[in-house]
Write a protein that binds this DNA or RNA. Structure first.
Lengths: 214, 214
DNA sequence: TCTACAATCGAATCGCAGTTCAATTGTTCG
DNA sequence: CGAACAATTGAACTGCGATTCGATTGTAGA
């Protein structure tokens, strides 16, 4: 099998990171294939050698991002820690992922609607690619729900175990995730707080919100 | 002064609400002037009689939305309640505004990046409108900061008064707003919880997170 | 009734972004 | 060295969406 000329070589993953970065700055709809290509010193046309089209590229970015996070979270939930300790570890990891990687984190939050719109209108006129696209898109949303479920289950577990007070777990879960997601919007490297410090505040806040009062 | 034929009459505000609704569904970049026009039974061309261009239309939507919220919040902060009561009232109002009006709420969150991009590239080629646009856009962001400050000041006040425990107020403020904003993403009328119930959960959660422990 | 102007629309520009394709380059493998 | 194929590109195609403009309609006030 022939390989790309070593010098100009750019692989799939490089493109995904680059795309995430551009996406963070401009948003899917405004981001052009040319923008993404430029970020890795390619031309727009070249991207079509790696991805069927723009929608798939976005989908790949999101799949990549969610995969990065779920794996680690599963490790934590499978461990032997208390529910409170698990939650703290999950929060630290999630916030760390967002602050350490604002691009991917922001993409995960803001580019979901474009993903929903994708392929809705004209593209895929009757659709050879569409079937695969729809399937993978649905799988992505399922994984997203699973991700949310990992947090929710720790809350539910902690409530059952009496570590946490009685709260509406689904809603509080979403409150947590919303607070974290928003970090991707305002956090800046070199700001008043480091990523770890932000994570510390979040851990402190959520444990306080959940601490059994008795 | 001649007025519009009573029957076909559509005023500025109607357009803003319609635009917010379409914006929620599709997002600024994908929303066409035709989409917005259709929502109020007009043609795209007609919109230009009410707004100079698409960017200004978005700006008007956001200005309208933020105004709606700030006025009420100021009332609350100016009242005689305790800090905890103020915070509860503010949370109830904010979440209520979002759930009662997902369109405007969602627009306020997601269309800020498009606003930043607006006029960045080509439009306003050298720019007759641009000066006014830039000025109003900056004013909008200032109001947005002011809005955040209203929440932060209640936290700070509560901490000083000993009603709340010591926390990093700026970060917790953003955590609160992030949690609320996210509500606009997942909340659906007719879901398991009503808007008021969601607000109740939020109030309970945040007061617990802030309750002085001694 | 007559005039001026607000509100609207249809049709015509204009530029751009996604996508396609045939041609080029350079590597790996036999 | 030669074949086969991965990686990349410049140029061309296409469709759509923002915006412009001249024409039309109907109402308010003189």
């Amino acid at each position: 099998m022939a390989r790309k000329p070593a010098a100009q070589s750019v692989d799939r993953e490089d493109i995904l990171w680059a795309a995430a970065e551009v996406l963070r700055r401009k948003g899917y709809d405004v981001t052009t294939m040319k923008d993404i290509a430029a970020e890795v010193n390619l031309t727009a046309a070249s991207l079509y050698h790696h991805f069927p089209n723009k929608d798939f590229l976005l989908l790949n970015v999101l799949e990549f991002g969610i995969g990065l996070v779920i794996e680690k979270l599963e490790e934590i939930t499978a461990s032997e820690m208390s529910h409170a300790e698990k939650l703290a570890a999950m929060i630290r990891f999630h916030v760390g992922a967002i602050t350490g990687n604002v691009a991917m984190g922001t993409a995960m939050i803001f580019e979901i609607r474009p993903l929903l719109n994708a392929g809705a209108g004209n593209r895929y006129g009757g659709g050879k690619f569409f079937e695969e696209f729809a399937e993978r898109r649905d799988r992505f949303f399922a994984r997203r729900d699973y991700f949310e479920g990992l947090f929710r289950n720790v809350l539910l577990g902690g409530i059952c175990a009496g570590e946490f007070r009685q709260v509406d777990a689904p809603t509080v879960t979403r409150a947590i995730l919303g607070a974290h997601n928003w970090v991707g919007v305002w956090y800046r490297d070199g700001g008043r707080l480091s990523g770890e410090e932000v994570a510390d505040v979040m851990v402190d806040t959520w444990l306080a919100a959940l601490r059994a009062s008795d």
